[in-house]
Design a protein around this nucleic acid. Structure first.
Length: 494
RNA sequence: GGGGGCAUAACUCAGUUGGUAGAGUAGUUGGCUUUUAACCAAUAAGUCCUAGGUUCAAGUCCUAGUGCCCUCACCA
């Protein structure tokens, strides 16, 4: 940490301390018996509170000095207010603090609300106190922090420098709160299930692993909360949801971060169609909370969010874009050969995986959305209930928006024997991404009986991306994953 | 993992054909009682990402590495 702090700043700090001031006081003394006011409130009530006293505190992000007069832009909470420091209005020792003040420092001020000669509502200081001395220079006031790596690594600087960044994260919080209210209004229970799983499941993904020392036990960071949430449905919690941080040990991209937020919800006595309705409601609630309006622009394209969203059967979308039926084995085989894809034997998981690869390759990127695609091949849906009328297909939908898959829902499979069979097929499959072990306890839970239920997972980060028009997932995550920064992280070789 | 791009002062960025390292802002010092990207004057600040190579001479050209970005692959 040598020469980590700027020498000029350290000198200012020493000057400040030599003057007898505390650079990091434990309490604010200039407020006296007056409460702290927020700049937005003062400015909103400026006309009625002219010439009355108020106290403010915040960060100094602008400064114009005139010797015996100084103007300071004080930023707090949602806004900022201009502070006027006039030598003849302040105690000498307070005015002298200006010498030790830099951009980025925090100050507290007591003073009167008045208009400047130019008519701007300001607070004319009668007492000034430095609350926190900064030892690092804030970025350029006009260009801000632009380097995308620095913005992510020093999000704390990005946040206080770029107002739009603050707003986006506040909107993200508002969207999550709005969705939470949708659930609570429908008698859902918010729950927390384990993050560390002895067996990972509920999705196909590479997990992170860890070890519990006392139990001498290998554990996996969850790749999905699904199987625990459905255990709760078995337990009689008929409507549950969780905003679940999940972890996948896979590549990073503008749409992928190793840890991300998956909203999952399950409701007894409904099916995937009920989930479709609820998903639409959730997306609209989130959009309203973010003040999106009818249309959002994402990556250069406009998306109309007026309900109801389009709905198309998987088989119909397949035929529409490929020109033949997904069940037309000869046509599918020919197309697979054309795109140099393996042609699997049989009609089990491998075959339908190949059919779905075709779907993803030739159809999915055309589904800009918002659109629900429903009734997926049962063979590739180990956790979904086959349709009563045709067990080739399962009660499942995916929701697409902005060209990305944002949600995935099932009529939950609740036949324990069929579930066990599908798990066994999965484990037998050579696909390294498939689960490596059967969660027998989950099968046992189903054996106690899970009522018919619908369940859904929504990728919250991607939803936020689209609704806020952010091209990269990094810009909707406060602290996206980055490589360790040279020289800052302590060595941790093991 | 493949391909492409970028890396220069604390921040934002210039840097021509290879010929002494630049600006604005921030900082420091001085001045200034109505500014709001204040102004005036002075001043300090560089591992030009790293390591090699070519050359009389490299921020600039070449090779490799590192980091970041984009893209493809991967990704229920």
């Amino acid at each position: 940490m040598h020469d980590y702090f700027h020498p000029d700043r350290l000198q200012k700090l020493a000057d400040l301390q030599n003057s007898g001031a505390d650079a990091y006081p434990a309490s604010i003394s200039v407020f006296g018996d007056l409460p702290r006011s927020m700049s937005v409130d003062l400015l909103a009530r400026a006309e009625e509170i002219q010439n009355t006293e108020a106290c403010v505190a915040g960060r100094v992000l602008g400064r114009r000095g005139y010797g015996k007069l100084a103007f300071i832009d004080l930023h707090d909470g949602e806004g900022s207010i201009q502070v006027v420091l006039q030598k003849d209005l302040l105690p000498a020792e307070d005015f002298a603090l200006l010498k030790c003040l830099n951009l980025g420092d925090f100050i507290a001020l007591r003073g009167e609300i008045k208009k400047t000669d130019k008519g701007q509502d300001s607070i004319y200081g009668s007492r000034l106190e430095i609350l926190t001395k900064g030892l690092e220079n804030p970025p350029d006031q006009h260009y801000g922090l632009a380097d995308s790596e620095l913005r992510a690594r020093r999000r704390y600087v990005d946040l206080f420098t770029n107002q739009s960044v603050r707003e986006n994260f506040k909107k993200r919080a508002a969207m999550i709160q709005a969705m939470r209210e949708v659930f609570l209004n429908q008698d859902y229970l918010e729950v927390e299930t384990p993050v560390m799983h002895p067996i990972y499941g509920g999705a196909n993904a590479e997990p992170f692993t860890t070890v519990h020392n006392a139990l001498d036990m290998k554990l996996y960071m969850r790749i999905a909360p699904e199987l625990y949430l459905k255990r709760l449905v078995v337990g009689g919690l008929e409507r549950v949801f969780e905003f679940a941080r999940v972890f996948r040990n896979e590549g990073l991209s503008p749409r992928h971060n190793p840890e991300f937020t998956m909203l999952e919800f399950y409701q007894a006595y409904t099916d995937y169609r009920g989930m479709m309705t609820l998903t639409e409601e959730l997306v609209l609630a989130a959009a309203a909370a973010a003040n999106c309006g009818e249309t959002v622009n994402f990556r250069g394209d406009d998306y109309n969010l007026s309900a109801p969203f389009a709905r198309i059967r998987y088989a119909d979308a397949f035929k529409e874009h490929l020109g033949f039926d997904a069940t037309d084995r000869d046509a599918v085989t020919a197309k697979l050969l054309e795109i140099k894809h393996d042609v699997p034997e049989g009609d089990g998981y491998a075959w339908w995986k190949a059919v779905n690869d075709l779907f993803e390759e030739c159809v999915e990127h055309k589904l800009t959305g918002p659109v629900f695609v429903y009734d997926y091949p049962a063979a590739i849906c180990p956790l979904a209930k086959p349709l009563a009328e045709d067990s080739t297909w399962a009660g499942r939908f995916e929701f697409f928006l902005g060209g990305m898959e944002l949600a995935n829902a099932f009529s939950e499979l609740n036949d324990p024997q069929l579930q066990l069979q599908k798990f066994e097929e999965q484990v037998a499959d050579a696909d390294p991404e498939s689960p490596n072990a059967i969660d027998y306890d989950y099968v046992r839970a189903l054996a106690y009986g899970m009522p018919p239920a619908g369940g859904c997972g929504i990728g919250i980060d991607r939803l936020v991306m689209v609704l806020l028009g952010q091209d990269t997932i990094r810009d909707v995550l406060l602290f996206p994953q980055l490589r360790a920064e040279d020289g800052l992280q302590g060595s941790s070789e093991d």
